[in-house]
Amino acid sequence: MIDKVVTSGTFSLDGGTWDVDNNVWLAGDAREVVVIDAAHDAKAIAQRVGGREVKAIVCTHAHNDHINAAAELAELTGAPIRLHPADEVLWSQVYGDSVPYVPLADGEKIEAGGISLEVLHTPGHAPGAVCLYAPEVCVLFSGDTLFKGGPGATGRSYSSFDTIIDSIRGRLLELPAETVVHTGHGESTSIGAEAPHLEEWIKRGH
């Protein structure tokens, strides 16, 4: 069972602020779920969770628009916050050292409701960016690493175009073509739909 809540707020970095809509994904079953990217509105996310147990609040990266409801949601649900430690520099911009998280490791598996999510470290958009791959249901939660139409943005601090391309080429495009890609913003896509355009992105990015 995969569910989505779209929340709205702002993304701020490097002195700029932009209005954004974020996809908050819930993966699990009728008893328990993992929340992926607690953005903007903890109460709306908790309402969608309902009476289910939240096994973990997983952050695909620590840009403020993906984590700014994580602390409140953790208080509401008692669930641990999970983040790759390479994003500590971004996490501390939002929470300082006041909100703890449990570090994510590449290759780790997080389970909820019969769905197993494998952590794929995919730096580039942010140093600690991760994607979550659920092979049993042929789904990838890509955060801001891969979108319909190309890679995530790399024009701001702590990001790298060459690194995100390496992550996509080496970690994501190796997945089965039929894998559905649920993104951090906007519409979902598939590995098969995006794979043929890698060289175009590289030309465009340089």
Rank of each mutant, 00 (worst) to 15 (best):
G50T: 01
A42Q: 07
N23L: 06
N68Q: 06
G28D: 05
A27C: 14
H61T: 01
V33L: 12
D41T: 11
G15F: 11
A39L: 07
V54C: 04
I36H: 06
G28K: 02
N22T: 15
H40K: 11
H66G: 06
W18Q: 13
Q47W: 00
R48L: 04
V49G: 02
D41Y: 10
A44Y: 04
D21T: 13
A30P: 00
H63Q: 10
G50P: 05
V54G: 01
V20W: 04
A46M: 09
D41G: 05
V24I: 13
N68I: 10
K43R: 15
R48W: 00
E53A: 13
S12N: 08
N68C: 14
A46I: 01
K55Q: 14
V49H: 01
G51T: 04
K43I: 09
V35H: 08
V54L: 03
L13M: 15
I36T: 07
H61K: 01
V49F: 02
D29A: 09
D21I: 03
R48M: 05
G15A: 12
D14F: 08
H63I: 11
A38S: 13
H40W: 10
N22V: 14
I57P: 01
G16C: 06
G51M: 05
D21W: 02
A39V: 08
I36M: 06
D21R: 15
R52G: 00
D41N: 15
C59Q: 12
V58W: 03
H66V: 08
D41L: 08
D41W: 11
V34M: 11
H63F: 09
A69F: 07
A39G: 11
W25Q: 08
G15P: 10
V24F: 07
H63A: 10
V58Y: 03
G28T: 09
G15I: 11
D29E: 12
A69C: 08
E53Q: 12
S12R: 14
D21A: 15
E32D: 09
N68S: 12
N68Y: 05
R31V: 10
T60R: 03
H40V: 12
A27N: 04
D14P: 09
H61M: 03
G51C: 06
A44C: 07
I45N: 04
S12V: 11
R48H: 06
R48S: 05
K43E: 15
H61Q: 11
D19N: 13
A69M: 09
I45C: 04
D41K: 11
H61G: 10
I57S: 05
V20T: 15
G51N: 10
A56R: 05
D21F: 02
H66D: 09
C59P: 04
V49L: 02
A30Q: 14
T60A: 10
W18P: 00
V49D: 00
N22R: 14
V54F: 02
K55Y: 00
H66K: 03
T60I: 06
A30H: 09
E32M: 02
V20A: 07
A56C: 09
I45Q: 04
V20E: 10
V49K: 02
D14I: 11
E53G: 01
H63Y: 13
